[in-house]
């Protein structure tokens, strides 16, 4: 369905993200539910029921509707680049009352909440450029409970990939039930401190079940997944086989003296949605 009005498009994008989970996440939760028993299974069953109810009633599945994080890949020839930041901000304000969203942005100095989910640097927008005239926007509403479990490790290069695995597994096991497991763990390896954490967050945009194209990285993703799930933390930290639904790694070249590892955790409500704005001003939420 093609429609006009970019702000309206971004509100539709936010509505979809907050009220419907992507199929890859639902499928992973269903698979986990079929493997679990006891309290772990009871919790996954009610999580799946909640997903259904939220979708049917058009309500946010979780009351923590998050901080809105946008990832924009903009075609350099798009006529809609100018004013896009303002449209995104206006859409977030509108969505706050229209969907509604919980007012979540707080001034870190005064402690005041403007009540519209915007503020300094927020909504957070990560920009990327591409050829062509389409603009792709993905939104990742990010809840506080899972975001609080983000970590940065500046490892010694001699620790190698084994050191990376050990660091991530330790941190996720330490996090226990706090980030609402079963989670998706995003990991950024390399770059500098900022890039490692940024890549870790961007890794969450990849569908659950999709492996990194580099075989060694894909193997590391599998090993970390198995190792965390062997811990027995389980759904909500109350025991079980499924602590993570998936682990995604992104990499960047590093300084010879550094091995930065960023971790960003996403709760089971791995909410994300993508839209495209075409050069003629029409848009589609995918």
């Amino acid at each position: 369905m093609k429609q006009r009005g970019i702000k309206a498009g971004i509100v539709a994008l936010l509505t979809k993200a907050e009220t419907e989970l992507p199929h890859d996440v639902i499928n992973a939760l269903r698979t986990a539910c079929s493997r679990e028993k006891g309290i772990a299974k009871i919790q996954l069953e009610i999580i799946l029921k909640n997903i259904q109810v939220a979708r049917h009633t058009g309500r946010p599945m979780c009351q923590d509707t998050g901080i809105q994080s946008f990832f924009v890949t903009a075609g350099v020839k798009s006529p809609y680049l100018s004013g896009l930041t303002a449209s995104i901000t206006a859409a977030v304000k509108h969505a706050t009352t229209a969907i509604p969203l919980r007012p979540n942005t707080v001034d870190p100095v005064s402690g005041k909440n403007p009540g519209d989910n915007t503020g300094e640097h927020i909504p957070a927008i990560t920009w990327d450029l591409c050829e062509g005239d389409d603009i792709w926007i993905t939104v990742l509403p990010k809840g506080g409970g899972s975001e609080n479990m983000s970590r940065l490790g500046m490892l010694k290069p001699s620790a190698g990939l084994e050191g990376v695995q050990q660091f991530v597994v330790e941190e996720i096991v330490k996090a226990g039930g706090s980030p609402c497991p079963p989670t998706i763990v995003g990991i950024g390896i390399g770059g500098g401190a900022d890039l490692a954490v940024k890549l870790a967050k961007q890794a969450l945009l990849r569908p659950v079940g999709q492996r990194h194209q580099n075989r060694r990285v894909a193997t590391l993703e599998r090993k970390i997944t198995q190792s965390i799930n062997a811990s027995g933390i389980g759904p909500m930290g109350l025991g079980g086989k499924t602590t993570v639904l998936d682990v995604h790694i992104e990499t960047a070249h590093r300084h010879p003296a550094s091995l930065p590892v960023g971790i960003v955790v996403q709760c089971w409500a791995d909410r994300r949605a993508t839209m495209v704005i075409h050069a003629d001003g029409t848009w589609e939420v995918k």
């Binding site: 919790q43 999580i47 979780c62 009351q63 809840g143 909500m236 089971w268």
Partner: peptide
Amino acid sequence: AAYPGGVGALAAD
């Protein structure tokens, strides 16, 4: 007691 995290719509019901 723990109520499953994120199960917001059902809790509201």
